[in-house]
Amino acid sequence: MVTNEHPVGLLPLQKFWEISRQIHEFMTWTQVECPFEKDKKIQSYLLTAPIYSEEALFIASFESEGPENHMEKDSWKTLRTTLLNRA
């Protein structure tokens, strides 16, 4: 059995190889040329579209569909309080 704990903070060999494999896959995919023609409108949108914070996405989600359970209601109350305190 492989555990996360190892003496002197070393990674177990199996975990090292898994991380290595994932990095190798990522590097391989970064070198693949996309077979589709570039669409200037889509490319422009992706380069200029706003990037929303996690809080902004949370707000948009709750504005679209209100909180449905106690956990969501608590999250909404906390977020609302945080935003009111900033103003």
Rank of each mutant, 00 (worst) to 15 (best):
M1V: 04
M1S: 12
M1W: 07
M1I: 07
V2N: 09
T3F: 09
T3P: 01
N4P: 01
N4W: 06
E5Q: 10
E5H: 08
H6S: 14
H6F: 10
G9H: 10
G9A: 06
G9F: 06
G9R: 08
L10S: 12
P12A: 11
L13I: 09
Q14A: 15
Q14W: 12
Q14P: 11
K15L: 15
K15R: 12
K15N: 09
K15F: 14
F16P: 00
F16Q: 03
F16S: 00
W17R: 08
W17Y: 09
W17D: 04
E18T: 10
E18K: 07
E18I: 07
I19H: 06
I19N: 09
I19P: 00
S20G: 03
S20Y: 10
S20D: 06
S20F: 12
R21I: 02
R21P: 00
R21F: 03
Q22G: 05
T28I: 13
W29C: 07
W29L: 14
W29M: 14
W29Q: 13
T30D: 12
Q31L: 12
V32M: 06
P35S: 11
F36T: 02
F36W: 11
E37R: 03
K38H: 12
D39C: 04
K40I: 10
K41D: 12
S44I: 02
Y45V: 00
L46M: 11
L46H: 03
A49M: 06
A49N: 01
A49F: 03
P50Y: 04
P50G: 07
P50T: 07
I51R: 15
S53M: 05
E54S: 13
E55A: 10
E55C: 01
E55T: 03
A56F: 04
A56L: 10
I59R: 02
I59D: 01
I59M: 06
I59C: 08
I59E: 04
A60Y: 03
S61Q: 12
F62S: 03
E63Y: 08
E63D: 14
E63H: 12
S64R: 15
S64H: 15
E65R: 12
E65I: 11
G66L: 07
P67Q: 02
P67T: 02
E68V: 09
H70L: 11
M71A: 13
M71F: 13
E72H: 13
K73S: 05
S75Q: 14
S75L: 12
W76G: 00
K77R: 05
K77P: 00
T78D: 10
T78A: 14
T78F: 07
T78S: 11
L79E: 06
L79K: 04
R80I: 02
R80A: 01
T82Q: 12
L84G: 00
L84A: 10
L84W: 04
N85K: 11
N85V: 05
R86G: 01
A87Y: 06
A87C: 06
A87N: 04
